[in-house]
Amino acid sequence: MTQEGAVAARVQHLTKTYGTGETQVVALDDVTIDLMAGEFTAVMGPSGSGKSTLMHCLAALDTADSGSVMIGDQELTVLKDKALTRLRRDAIGFVFQSYNLVPTLTARENILLPLSIAGRDPDREWYDAVIATVNLADRLDHKPNQLSGGQQQRVAVARALVSRPRVVFADEPTGNLDSASGAEVLDLLRRSVDEHHQTVVMVTHDPVAAAYTDRVLFLADGRVVDELRDPSREQVLETMARLAA
């Protein structure tokens, strides 16, 4: 686990555009951010603000036109596909909006998939801790289609946590869930930060979700336009309203 106060991920002067000429869209416009280890960060902004692109670049799923991306002390922009794949496997965890579990595998197998792909044995103690945190011990032998949406998303969170990545990225993890299930998932992410010093970055629309985090970054037109520390739901709503105006 990374030390408190260290930078877990960093982007500098990151720029990305789509299309050319008239139809050109600037998704990221010279963005520079430090994401601190052991922090729960939310990225917010209206559609087209570049928040998803930012996260995809951070998570080694997409490449930017210029600027640098670092996970820990590893510069991503110089890596080839093979190394990026290995980085995703070992240093990054993912939680998607739609649960994205492998339907043929049981919950347990889904959780252990990144480790078994890497050919590593799970750290027994850590695995038990993760299972305890996500509170799924009695559901581990079920296939995804036997689980509710909230349970599936908790499996996805457990899968992201189990390989002890430097950063867990969550892309609207509560977007498809009712509020109770959503709260369970957010609580889970929060506790992984508090109890295990996990670094978590979450893209969201939801001020309620944002209120679970330590820090909220607001994006608009590809730029970071505002930032809140230890936000409440009201503060987030206020900022959003102000930015939209």
Binding site: D81, T85, R86, R88, F94, N100, L101, V102, P114, I117
Partner: peptide, 16 residues
């Protein structure tokens, strides 16, 4: 397609 994308995202290599 989506499942394959997921596998790639969590670190399955092309070879695998």
């Amino acid at each position: 397609t989506r499942e394959i994308g997921l596998l790639r995202a969590i670190g399955v290599s092309r070879r695998q």
